[in-house]
Design a protein around this nucleic acid. Structure first.
Lengths: 133, 133
DNA sequence: GATTATTCATTGCATTTGCAATAACTTAGT
DNA sequence: ACTAAGTTATTGCAAATGCAATGAATAATC
């Protein structure tokens, strides 16, 4: 049953190559676009939470977020209660670019599953959901 | 339908983190173990073929293979017909370590799909196969 | 058969990556 | 209240990464 884990890996790497190429012009290569999308959709996560939600190493995530803050895509805010936490929000530039990121993700996603019927797509979605927990 | 592409990405990154940690002691981190497994199973691919089969950048793949050759895991052979090609084979060390890599991949794979029934696993496998081409 | 276009391996270089370690802070246990 | 254990963000550093470019070999086209 290796095919599953192998196919999943190949699809991810292929997708990342294309998406990074697409968003390099915006300074959002190296998976940086992921952070903008996720932060837009779920604002206020702290750094570690954000990193865990996309399964990326925390130190890598930290540096990418820093860069995105410097570039005006994201914004950090200290948590009021817990002084260790820094929560992440989109800044103007991040909000402005979200629709484009979203559209491209949709396009990529649609293209990926274009060989499947609608029922098969639903099936696949449900099966994968069982894997992530 | 984003969930599909997002879940697939998260699963891949999580899997890679664990597998790299497992095989660092053998000098097979950074996805290096993938090359040994694939080469063992399909000997004689040329470098570009091998890279494409796992969807990894060719220059990265090239350097990883070089390192694996230096470390005694793989072996390169010039193609007789086409002087551009260098074909990849496992060396002693690669063959020796294959069973362990294989077992770990099986373990990881089994654990990943452990929430699914056998029929669901078959379904998932078939659905994913449709995505890769 | 000469020329053009592809395809391959390889290198240069700047950037990214991630393990390991640290300091600040919070939680749990006594 | 105090201590120990766990969690967070952060930095250092060596190694990996990947885009761009090059040269060599082959394939395609004229």
């Amino acid at each position: 049953m290796f095919e599953i884990i192998r196919d999943i890996g190949a699809i991810t790497r292929q997708t990342e190559i294309k998406t990074n190429a697409e968003f390099r012009r915006l300074g959002l290569a190296n998976n940086a676009f992921i952070y903008v999308i996720r932060t837009y959709e779920k604002p206020g996560m702290f750094l570690g939470q954000l990193a865990d939600s996309v399964q990326i190493d925390r130190t890598t995530a930290f540096r990418t977020v820093q860069k995105l803050v410097d570039n005006g895509y994201l914004r950090l805010e200290d948590d009021a209660k817990d002084k260790r936490l820094r929560r992440v929000y989109v800044a103007q530039k991040g909000a402005a670019v979200y629709p484009e990121l979203h559209a491209f993700e949709k396009h990529t996603s649609d293209r990926l599953v274009s060989q499947l019927t609608v029922e098969e797509q639903t099936q696949l979605k449900q099966l994968l959901a069982k894997l992530v927990y």
